[in-house]
Amino acid sequence: MQVDYKKLWIRLIEKGIKNKTDLIPLAGISTNILAKLNKGEYVSMDSLAKICRALNCDIGDICVINEVNKK
């Protein structure tokens, strides 16, 4: 499975947040978490909850899990 955070980046734009790094102080996350989000890597539920509280949204509003077919 792969995590897709495109919805998060769209939500930031909708909120008028043009720079992804502005999410760090807004949500109280670390630069490592932001780097993982940029790479589409897994982050803790705690980090996702902080982002959701900061953006006043639900987890489904910021990410989706995509199934990756392995052959």
Rank of each mutant, 00 (worst) to 15 (best):
M1R: 12
M1H: 08
M1F: 04
M1E: 10
M1C: 03
Q2L: 13
Q2D: 15
V3D: 05
D4M: 07
K7N: 10
L8N: 06
W9C: 00
W9Y: 05
I10A: 07
I10Y: 03
R11D: 00
R11Q: 06
R11K: 14
L12E: 02
L12N: 03
I13V: 12
E14N: 07
E14C: 05
E14H: 01
E14R: 10
K15P: 05
K15N: 15
K15T: 08
G16N: 14
G16Q: 11
N19H: 15
K20C: 09
T21M: 12
T21R: 15
D22V: 03
L23G: 10
I24Y: 13
I24W: 12
I24F: 11
P25G: 04
L26N: 09
A27N: 05
A27Q: 07
A27W: 00
G28R: 02
G28W: 03
G28Q: 08
I29C: 03
I29R: 03
I29K: 03
I29W: 01
T31H: 14
N32W: 04
N32R: 10
N32I: 13
I33N: 07
I33A: 12
L34V: 04
L34R: 09
A35C: 13
A35E: 15
K36R: 10
K36P: 01
K36G: 05
K36Q: 11
L37A: 06
K39D: 13
E41W: 08
Y42A: 14
Y42M: 12
S44D: 11
M45V: 15
D46V: 09
D46W: 00
D46Y: 05
L48S: 07
L48C: 10
A49K: 14
A49R: 14
K50Y: 06
K50G: 02
I51K: 02
C52V: 06
R53V: 02
A54Q: 06
A54W: 01
L55I: 03
N56C: 04
N56E: 14
C57V: 00
C57Y: 00
C57W: 00
D58V: 05
D58S: 10
D58Q: 12
I59D: 01
I59M: 04
G60F: 00
G60N: 06
G60S: 02
D61V: 00
C63D: 01
I65C: 11
N66K: 15
N66P: 05
N66V: 13
E67Q: 09
V68R: 14
V68A: 11
V68E: 14
N69G: 07
K70Y: 13
